[in-house]
Structures are given as C-alpha cells and as structure tokens.
Design a protein around this nucleic acid. Structure first.
Lengths: 388, 388
DNA sequence: CCTTTATTATAACATAGTTAATTAAGTTAA
DNA sequence: TTAACTTAATTAACTATGTTATAATAAAGG
C-alpha cells in the first residue's frame, strides 16, 4: 500500500481526470467535475497542468445547455508516442503509435534460427531503430518501449526466462533496450500483453475484469482486473493452455495428459482430424480443416465443434475460478469462429453452475493481427494514464 | 477508484499505522515511522487519535537503543468485540470474540429440517442474542456480525441465494440481522470466509495472495489477494469443486462429469472405496476409509493417495490460473492429511509448468474446527483494520 | 434588454503532511 | 559525576492541496 501524501492525493485526482477525458472526450471541465465528484476548482487546476504538459488540449466550444458554452477538452493523441514490439517465435514486429494506438510506422523482421541471445537482441534493437528513423517523431516525444515476448517472462526484471520456440533462455531484454535507447522498457508475456491491449483498445468499455485468450501455437491467457494485468505470485497466472481437463487424454508436450492445448491449438485440431477422418492427408494443417469445414464437410465441421466444446470446458473452469466479466478469444484458431464460437458458448451455458454466471460474455477479438502489438503499446499507456 | 481527498489521505495513513501495530506489536512510534516511511509527527498525531478511540494503548517502556526508551504501543484487543456465525447445513454455530479472535462466548444450535426461511433466520437471531446475553460485553463495544453461510451468497446485498443443503433460497440475512441488532452485518460464503480467516488468523505472515480450500461435504475455495477476498464479477470466483478434470469421469451432482468434487469429498472417497475394494460394506463412510488406512490397509491407503493425486491435479490447474503464493487445505477430509497431503504435493510438483511455480506452498490449516467461525469474525476485522 | 443559468476562474479557508527545532530521557566514557 | 552523545516524542512554522464561496463571463429565453 502506498502511504498517503499530498503528491499521491494529487496524482490520484490527476489520473481520474485524465482517464475521464480519455474515455469521454470531448468533455468540459464542468462535466468532469460532475462525473467524478471532484470540485470545479480542483478540476480546473489539474487540467491546467495537463495542458501545460501537452497531453490535453482545448478544442472548440461545445453546445450550450442554457448558459455559457463549455470549452471541450481532448487528449492530444500526438503529444506522445510509444513503440510496441511483438517478439514471436518466427519474427519480430515493431510499431510506433500515437497515444490513440494509431500506427505511424511499422517494421517486421524474420528470425533465422538457430539464433543466440545477442543476435536476438540485435534484431530487436535494429527494428526499433528502424521505426524511429522512418518516422519523423522526435525522440523526446517517445515515452517508452513495450515488448510482448512469447514464452515465460519475469516481468519486474524484464527478462525472458524461457523462449521455447527460439531455444533461448534468460534474455535480459529490459536491461539491453534501456541501455540502448534510454527509454522506459516494459516486457510482458505476449498473451498477457494481448489481454491488456484488448482491454485498452478493444472497445469493451469499463470492465471490472476480463480474460483474453490467445489460441494459436499454444493457448495462453491474460487476466485483467480493474484495468491492470494480474500476474500472480510467480508471473504464471493465466496459464490456461496446460489446464488438465481430461486426465486420461492425449499426452501434451508438457508431459501431462489432457491439457487444453491438446485440444485447442491449430496443430491439435489438425492432429485430431488426421486421426478421426478417413482420407485426411498426412500434411493436413489447422487451416485446411477450416477450409474443409467452410466447404461444408460435416466431418471437419464436427472436429471444429468438438474443439469448441473442449475450449468451453476449459473456459468454464476458468469462469469458476476467476469469474471474469468477459472473455475475449484471439489468435489464429479464432479464424474458425463460425464453427467454434457457438460450441464454446453452448458448452459454457450448459456447464456453468449458477444462472448469473451464464451471463459471462464470450466474444472474438476485433483487434485482428495487431492485437499483440497494440498490447505491447498498452503496457506503456497504462503507465501514463493509470499509474496507481 | 476513490478520488483523492484529505480524509482519504488520512485514512490511508491511519490504516497503515494500525496494521503496522497489529502485525508488529509491541512497537514504538519511532519504529512505526521508520518502517512505514511516515514522518514522526504524522505517526504521533494519528496514534493519539487511535488511543482516544481506544483501539490502541501504550504499554510499558521498551529497551533503550542507546537513547530515550521508546513507549511501546499495543492493540487493545478488548476495545471491541465481534460476533461470528457459521450457518452450516446442520447447525448454526455462533461465537463472540475480541479483536484477537479470542473466543469469549459460544453457542451452537441444531437445525431441524425441513425448515423455512423465517425459522432459519429465527435460529440465527436467537443464537446471537444468546452469546450477547451470556457475555458481559456491552453492546456499544460490538462492531458487527459476520455470517459464513454455506451455498451461494450475494455478498453486497447479504442474501443467501441458494442454500442447497437446507433447501432454501433467497434468505435476506443481512437485512434481517441489521434490523434486529442495529449492527454492521457482513455475509459471505463459508469457504471464502474460512479463507479470509485463514489469512487473518492462520499465522502465514503477509502473503501477496493465498487460496484456502475447504474439503468437506463439497469442495469450496476462497481467494485472498492482498488481504482482501476476491469475488469475481458474479461472486463465484473460487468455485473449485466443479472444476472439470476428467471429462469422461463420473457424473457429479451438478450434472457434469469428472468435477473435482467427484474425487475429493468424504462421500466421493467412500463411494470409490465401496466400488473398488472387495469386502467394503455398503455403509462405509469417508471416516471409515481413514480408519482403515490408519490401520495399515493398503487398499484404503491407495484410495486416499489417489484422492490426493486428483486434488493435486485440480490444484495444479488452480496454480496455473490464479498462481497464489500459498494454498491452505481445511475441512473434514484433511483429517486424512497423512495420506493425502504427500500425494497432493508430489502431484503438483510433477505437473506444474515452471520451476518457480513448484515453490507454491501447500499446507493444512491450523485453525481446526473454528476456521469458518473465525473467518466470519474476520469479515468485520478487515473492515476495522484494513478498510481501503 | 434583463433575468436566468451554465461555465470557468479566483480568493479565502481548511486539512493534513513536512521540516526543523525542542524537549525528554536515556547511555557512554572521561 | 558530569559532559557529550543517542534516541524518542512533541511542538511550531510551513507548505501543498482540496473546499467553499463568490465573482466574472457568456449564452439562452422571455
């Protein structure tokens, strides 16, 4: 717990006002005072500071409500910029955005394996240098670099502990990038970054809690509670992929049986199709299953529906433990949402314990391919807009 | 988010100081200032208020550190009293304790079924009246009544939505008791109350997060994060009992298959013993299984070990989702801890993903039979000591 | 045009923490 | 024993920041 000081009192109010403007812009000072229960003078004085800082600006006057016209306030989305990096198993993508998440510049570099820690860091550095060079954004307007890294990440230290798909361990990302660029660097697991991005840019409004699930090569999830990522005590909260739902099921790469991952990844879907469908080729991929299902082949449709059911079982367990207000699904597998989503929803509806819990919303992300990159960006936006 | 005001700033500091005294008593003002980074005058002035309120008192002088002797401060455990009610499926237990959880008075009343909402409320009221009469504690020293209620509880409204073992629904506990006694009333699910009690009285020190699991008639859990119960968005977070771990397993009373409850309750243990062991009687109970195991019967020991393994699977799922610092097991089934606990620990150790997660502590409660009652009490102590 | 009402700013005030000085009550060593 | 030093707690002056009350401004409506 933070101790109570004047600075803290003020920064609380500053955050409240800044977030109110962000979520309700354009908005007048008087309106802010009403909606936040802060007094008008307090709002005025803090808004004045925010304007000096450049993060808020006055726009034209709004419509009068029967008296003086209000001066409307806006976030100056171009006051600051952020760099987001998505360090996946096959490539490093990098974007530079303004505060609204609008992409100003982007790059992507393929990773040639095998690779060393040094080479990997070098690729990240070069990507970041590149977006900085290509854009005309001056460096003092950059507030930091957010990195979404696959694998296991130690968040505080900013170290990638295990990056299985690169075969690397203990990469000191934060330290290296801070030394190179002299900017704030935040490193986070990719599924979790995606979750934060989803809560920040996904248009879900103010949720008390949400979970975003990334269905791709693995099954990862991020838990966002009151706008903040929940890490757990050892940074593994949300490790949905290796939840056991069938103790007698197939062996997972982790060594256990019946993990959710053995049902819900693209690879698992393809594997099950090859096993259960006569005439399925050896080279069948998850995408192929989707194509066949789209073409109306019942056998493949059934595979996808079963996938949805298993996912529904896993998500029901998640609802019973974490009970989020909303669950958002993203990642490659959600391309098959037409077949999977109804099965997921139906399964949850059947299995969940109480009637109220049935109200848990389940939706597909609408951020598309940039979800993780925007998540990386949001790591820093949270610092700026909601630091408490 | 609370807006920043002077009152709030002060109450933050008051809480910090009060909790510091509670956890580190006896402690001097100077020591508090050092450990909290508050300034000495701030500490002095707030301590003065706490002494006027009666909740803190000065004790004898401490040992000198080379200068003036410090006046040590203590919580006056008898400054206020709390009533805790455990409304179980078969009886209503009620205690009156001081602030340290020391039981001053207690009652227990059996519930004769069938019963109506009105009769049930009447029993609770009578129990509470009884402990108040029997003790010499004056009513203005009572800060409130905490109720640990089995089944599904809507916490804010203080309503027992579903009490399956009583066959009752929608019991307006909070409303009724507040009207009768004119005291603050907090109602909570029993497993969750137990969890809070465990974190408050269990002697675990300051944990960032913990989960307490109640293994009895059902399997319930409470999640405590930063000293506060985590409810989730619909008050069902921690519903561990109906986590699916074996989709093809036995049918559970909830209608699904392979819930943790089908493995880890006393009834489930007895049922599995009857099925798998030749010569087991039809009337075998969970207790009997424990007795046979204690007597060295390998077949029964195996049943308990398997129970521990299944519980370990469920707890591994929990660790992967919530990642608590510590897991505490309580309830009737833990009487068999000798056979179950090693299996639980070993299973978690085998199945958990990352090496750090293996460090999650798993322990048996040391609060014994009063765990739930003390949990009910702690519902109010949190309000008093840590209201933020 | 005057009254009403909404918006914003300003001034006087209140709250509560901070800094620095002071008092209190010891310990240590010449 | 007493001077010099430590540590503990209080007091006084100061500062930061929110609050209340009031004023200034601007628009709408009769």
């Amino acid at each position: 717990m933070q101790r109570g000081t004047f600075q803290q009192m003020k920064s609380v109010n500053k955050s409240i006002i800044l977030n109110k403007i962000r979520t309700s812009e354009p908005i007048s000072r008087a309106q802010i005072a009403k909606e936040t229960t802060l007094t008008p003078p307090t709002v005025s004085s803090i808004v004045k500071e925010l304007i000096v800082q450049g993060i808020v600006r006055e726009s034209e006057l709004g419509a009068s409500q029967g008296g003086r016209k209000p001066t409307m306030l806006l976030i100056d989305q171009t006051a600051f910029y952020v760099i987001g990096v998505d360090a996946g198993p096959e490539s490093v993508a990098c974007i530079l955005t303004d505060l609204s998440g609008e992409v100003i510049e982007r790059t992507a570099s393929k990773i040639n394996k095998p690779i060393t820690n040094e080479q990997f860091i070098a690729i990240m550095k070069e990507s970041i240098h590149q977006v900085m060079r290509s854009s005309s954004v001056s460096k003092d307007k950059l507030i930091g670099i957010g990195v979404a890294m696959h694998g296991v990440v130690e968040v505080e230290a900013g170290i990638s502990l295990i990056a299985p798909n690169l075969g690397l361990t203990n990469i000191p990302i934060k330290m290296e990038l801070e030394a190179e660029f002299n900017l704030i660097v935040q490193v986070e697991n990719d599924a979790r970054a995606m979750a934060l991005g989803e809560s920040w840019f996904g248009g879900h409004g103010e949720l008390e809690s949400m979970v975003a699930v990334n269905l791709g090569r693995g099954v990862g999830a991020g838990v966002v509670i009151k706008g903040k990522l929940y890490h757990g005590s050892q940074d593994i909260a949300g490790e949905l992929g290796h939840m056991t739902i069938d103790i007698h099921g197939d062996v997972c790469e982790c060594g256990n049986r019946g993990c959710l991952q053995t049902f819900a990844t693209g690879k698992a879907i393809a594997g099950r199709a090859r096993k259960e469908i006569n005439g399925a080729t050896e080279m069948l991929t998850g995408k192929d299953v989707f194509q066949h299902a789209l073409a109306g082949d019942e056998a493949y449709i059934k595979i996808l529906q079963e996938t949805g059911e298993m996912l529904g079982v896993g998500l029901t367990n998640l609802i019973h433990l974490i009970n989020p207000e909303k669950i958002v699904l993203g990642g490659g597998v959600t391309k098959s949402k037409k077949f999977i989503l109804p099965a997921v929803k139906q399964t949850i509806d059947q299995r969940v314990l109480t009637p109220v819990a049935k109200r848990t919303e389940v939706a597909i992300t609408n951020l598309g391919d940039d979800a993780t990159l925007l998540g990386a960006v949001s790591l820093l936006l949270v610092d700026l807009f909601d630091p408490l």
